[in-house]
Amino acid sequence: QEPLTVSMLASAPLQEQKHMLGERLFPLIEAIHPTLAAKITGMLLEIDASELLHMLESPESLGSKVDEAVAVLQAHYAEEAAQKAK
């Protein structure tokens, strides 16, 4: 699979850009968090395309963003559980 470039993304509509990025990010995220990969990818796609491109090339950046996303997700689920318990 050829690397995704800024020019490839620039020629596509925003929604399509995110989809292209998601297709590349998902397998990398799935390797870290198989069960939460779909949710984490969805969260990370809210980030700017330029930053996502950087994350594709930098496993460290991706890893730290994934950790951040998991923390946010777990906090979100905890809040939901607390609201349901009321």
């Binding site: 995110k18 949710k39 990818t41 969805g42 796609l45 979100h76």
Partner: peptide, 26 residues
């Protein structure tokens, strides 16, 4: 919106066109 955050975040699945937040809040 009106409590639809229960489905947040939207899920990305390979091969499925990405619609972002529209996936969960049509």
């Amino acid at each position: 919106s009106n409590g639809s955050s229960i489905n947040w975040p939207p899920e990305f699945h390979p091969g499925v066109p990405w619609k972002g937040l529209q996936n969960i809040d049509p």
